[in-house]
Design a protein around this nucleic acid. Structure first.
Lengths: 186, 186
DNA sequence: GACTTGCTTGAACGATCAATCAACAACCGT
DNA sequence: ACGGTTGTTGATTGATCGTTCAAGCAAGTC
């Protein structure tokens, strides 16, 4: 149930889940032994569905590997705008909302991040020689995630997408500089 | 009370605050009408104390303006390490933990961010011609915040400072490219 | 020494929430 | 038709939490 995404984990009560799912508490507890298990289920589903839910819609009409990265970021932008800056990256929100997460939950959050950055690494690999050969693609992919999450955080705090846009713009400048550096080797 | 920083707002109960402050509930409610007012007080204190609490300790022995930025980031690194990746930026945590924040609270979070980036803008201004003249210093300062928050988030999720270090390293690469671009004008 | 004012005490209240469980229905194979 | 399994119902429980309040205390004022 994607209520967790909107309201957060702690603020989403079992009653919320029940009214949304039209279930009774007993039925829910028959499937999920505890509220945390619901969260685990949701995180697993998100991890496994990232391809269809995030990448495919964003990449529908984009071929250029580097533009794919920014198309994905633009997908987040759309979500921010449509939710009036309330909704950002669900994983990032949970990562900071849960202060002493269960090991399994923390692990799933990490796996979600890893899946995300793996997709970016795929783009970077496809970009081939447009980037300097010494580029640490894993670190750069994590930096893309970093920029996205930080941008989402500021947009939400200021209630203004422009903060997200500026983060993306700075990231784009970084990529421009990298591409330029790749053309004129040291 | 800096319990909010460690455990988060929702997970810190009034009872926690009482035992920590050696107060009784009545006394606390005599000063702060509600729990949220405690948060507001803490956010105001943090906003006003950022200079002494964050900048001065980090910048004690650093003069170079750009190195000051990275000295500040290194201060966050220390906090991450000392808290075993549990503690990051308190403002960032609250910004994502509170999903429907009171307007005043949201405003204070934004002010804290603005104070922070203003300090970075000061460094960028001091860096003068080492950066390309067309540089949008405000946007770049926000990007530094973005990188910091994103790095903190990933370090906490993976329980590994290396994720923070890589974000800082990427940011440093970005600054290197900017400085290089400033030397060889288009 | 009465009276006010400012602050403290800590038990109590009401609300919310996650979780439980005994009773019950629906479906299946035999 | 029957027993067994699986899934459902929803009132209830026990715990936690934010908040309140009547009573008390200490210090200052006239």
């Amino acid at each position: 149930m994607e209520l967790f995404w909107l309201k957060g984990y702690n603020s989403t009560s079992i009653a919320d889940l029940l009214s949304r799912t039209q279930l009774n508490s007993g039925s829910l507890y028959h499937v999920f032994p505890s509220k945390q298990d619901v969260l685990i289920g949701v995180l697993e589903a998100y991890r496994d569905g990232i391809e269809q839910m995030l990448l495919e819609p964003a990449w529908g009409s984009v071929d250029d590997p580097i533009e794919k990265i920014f198309a994905l970021l633009n997908g987040y932008r759309t979500m921010i705008v449509e939710s009036d800056c309330a909704y950002g990256c669900p994983i990032g929100s949970l990562a900071l909302e849960l202060h002493e997460p269960d090991p399994r939950v923390r692990e799933l959050l990490a796996e979600n991040f890893e899946n995300w950055t793996a997709a970016i690494v795929g783009c970077l690999d496809a970009a081939g020689k447009r980037l300097p050969p010494a580029t640490d693609k894993q670190a750069l992919a994590q930096f893309v995630l970093t920029a996205m999450e930080g941008g989402v955080m500021q947009a939400r705090t200021h209630l203004d997408v422009a903060y997200f846009d500026r983060a993306v713009e700075q990231l784009r400048a970084h990529f421009s500089l990298l591409e330029k550096a790749a053309k004129t080797p040291a």
